[in-house]
Design a protein around this nucleic acid. Sequence first.
RNA 1: GGAAGGGUGGCUGAGCGGUUGAAAGCACCAGUCUUGAAAACUGGCGUGGGUUUACGCCCACCGAGGGUUCGAAUCCCUCCUCUUCCGCCA
Length: 424
Amino acid sequence: MLDPKLIRSELASVAEQLKKRNFELDVATLERLEQERKACQIETEQLQNERNTRSKSIGKAKAAGEDIQPLLDEVAGLGEKLDAAKTRLHEIQQQIDAIMMGIPNLLHESVPVGRDEDDNVEIRRWGEPKKFGFEVKDHVDLGAKNGWLDFETASKLTGSRYVVMRGQMAKLHRALIQFMLDVHTNEHGYTEVYVPYIVNSDSLRGTGQLPKFEEDLFCVDKEAGHYLIPTAEVPVTNIARGEILEADQVPMKLTSHTPCFRSEAGSYGKDTRGMIRQHQFDKVEMVQLVSADQAWDALEELTAHAETILQKLELPYRTVVLCSGDVGFSAAKTYDLEVWLPGQDTYREISSCSCFTDFQARRMQARWRNPETGKPELLNTVNGSGLAIGRTLVAVLENYQQEDGSVLIPEVLKPYMGGVEKLV
RNA sequence: GGAAGGGUGGCUGAGCGGUUGAAAGCACCAGUCUUGAAAACUGGCGUGGGUUUACGCCCACCGAGGGUUCGAAUCCCUCCUCUUCCGCCA
């Protein structure tokens, strides 16, 4: 959520900035509602003040043993007026809130202006796509061997867009998770957390998935408002919801491995082959809760942490800054890391690192106490995948494939594979 | 799943339906004292919102949401949550 004060005082400028992300802010409606709100709120508070004052005097009179009936007669009708005003104020406020909750974050000035993903800008590239002296296979063909990746069985068990992994492939998948968590905790200063995979709607509102993007989620209990997490970002970031962190806890750097569940509504026909787009996938996530002046450095740092994983795995990738039309709802700036997939002869997203400024924190009321002022201030939130496990597995298979269909194990993963050097 | 008891400011912890945003203690900040520190003493010290150039004034908040009342932290209802005991169980 944006700062309501900013919306009031800089409405035109905010609307102008939002145009960059193809978002039309209904300025006229907001202005009208804001005017009504102001008038109504003043009226309501005046009535409340009157009621409080009179009630107090009734209390005094009663304590003094006076007859309070005349005073009671005076307040007759006040309650009704107050109730009416309150109801109206509440309605107006709800309309404003509904609009406010649907407004995306403001973009950082460095975000390039563009329409869609085609206008994203590559800012750096690491590693050289390997030249294979044979016809490369994609991960689906490679995974067919030994039932390593079994999509047919998964669709029997559940449906499309799920996978069963077997034997060394399942182990490699687990090795990637262990490896990434170890790097982030041992070398990057993150604290590992284990979190629930089901969250309530308050948490989803906090990070911005609700109310706008409910169709992307799996709901497990409509009545309780419980959903499967689409990313660890939701439970991990919401750890700070409603909290005031002490200065020595900031920045708070957390990492977590979780499965992620996405309904992928509206992506029919997209990436239907293989593991690129699944309803369930695993991810190691990094989250940083920082002060406002640390936010942009934190985004660079966290992005570098994700890149480190790719470098250690020796997977070629490029870093892309998303253009204004492609940045997600809650983010102010996003870097995507795209890994080279020989099977597709292209770079594919494997990590997304974003700075949300105070957008999520305001929704969550996640704050820290600034010792300089002694006052609570909104945190800034930064997060990114470090990395998506399924896609990393795909990248390892395709990049490390041999002509005979076997797959070499990247050097850094060997300790996690119990001495196995090659999947055969 | 059954039974009982709790949820109050950064923490601990009082609170009869009425001048209680809320005692007290701790912590914290400032000052006095001291060579310095500690102790002691004095004062300050919640959050959100509205309004104002500003000083300030006003409103809301005692787990959440309803209700009763002129007036609710205090009474009633629903829900959430925590603790303890019993049962069941990976």
